[in-house]
């Protein structure tokens, strides 16, 4: 896209950007993740779905170590995420994350939200950061809101700003943690369209979402989780038309009504 100094090594299409092996995580006695094995290649679009409490948000939050896993290994571009690592911030700068509750910085304008990351931690000077921010706001189709504060925007607009804010860091991977769950129904589609555009541009994406239409259209692979385990993963076509497990069938029946 643009000139960037990226922190984590480049990947070929074949080696995984993210790989998890035997990952286990507990909250007290409750096992949130059990024996997760997953590999995600460059430019792959993964949708993670499953009933609430199945561990999908926990899983995605482990990928940039907002949550700690207790057993197994997680590698991001060959760098292992663990407790004692020195360069977690460097890894995080290359992984964009979009939250269910947007989490924009309310005391900064939309433009400042987008400029903050590149300017503060990527060493991009202000004018360049602004240029990039404007470009990204155009990409998510709200350049005209640049000087407003987040709480002056609708939910859908805020989430698109959040996406633009992440993109300004020029990440290698984008994580979406239920990005449309907190939105009014009429605003879901504008966010999904932005995500579809992003997928078309070749971004590696991992999305936790209940939007099955989006999954069908965009996903290379759908990962279905229940009770902290990956129950099955398949191409959208197979996943919807030919689910292998009873749990998957029940879930699909409920969600596709």
């Amino acid at each position: 896209m643009m000139d960037t100094k990226t922190n984590i090594p480049n990947n070929t299409e074949m080696t995984p950007v993210i790989s998890l092996k035997g990952v286990n995580k507990w909250y007290g006695d409750f096992q949130a993740l059990s024996n997760i094995d997953l590999e995600i290649k460059l430019k792959e679009k993964i949708v993670i779905c499953g009933p609430s409490g199945s561990g999908k948000s926990t899983l995605i939050r482990c990928l940039n170590r907002l949550e700690a896993h207790q057993e197994g290994t997680i590698h991001v571009s060959g760098i292992e995420l663990h407790e004692r690592m020195k360069d977690i911030d460097v890894v995080r700068q290359d992984i964009g994350m979009v939250f269910q509750s947007f989490n924009l910085f309310p005391h900064l304008t939309v433009l400042e939200n987008c400029m903050a990351g590149p300017n503060w931690v990527r060493g991009v000077d202000k004018s360049k950061a602004k240029e990039r921010a404007v470009a990204m706001l155009e990409q998510v189709k709200i350049p005209e809101q640049a000087d407003k504060y987040p709480d002056q925007l609708s939910g859908g607009q805020q989430q698109r700003v959040a996406i633009a804010r992440s993109l300004c860091m020029q990440p290698k991977v984008m994580l979406f943690d239920e990005p449309t769950s907190a939105l009014d129904p009429e605003m879901v589609s504008e966010v999904l369209e932005t995500m579809i555009e992003l997928a078309k541009s070749g971004m590696t994406m991992i999305c936790v979402t209940h939007e099955m239409g989006f999954a069908r259209q965009v996903a290379d692979r759908i990962v279905f989780m229940a009770e902290g385990e990956i129950v099955e993963q398949n191409s959208p076509k197979e996943f919807f038309n030919n689910p292998q497990h009873e749990r998957t069938k029940v879930f699909l029946d409920q969600i596709l009504e």
Binding site: R92, M97, V121
Partner: peptide, 8 residues
């Protein structure tokens, strides 16, 4: 969380 996710 959002700040951490940006690598701050």
């Amino acid at each position: 969380e959002a700040s951490r996710a940006l690598g701050f």
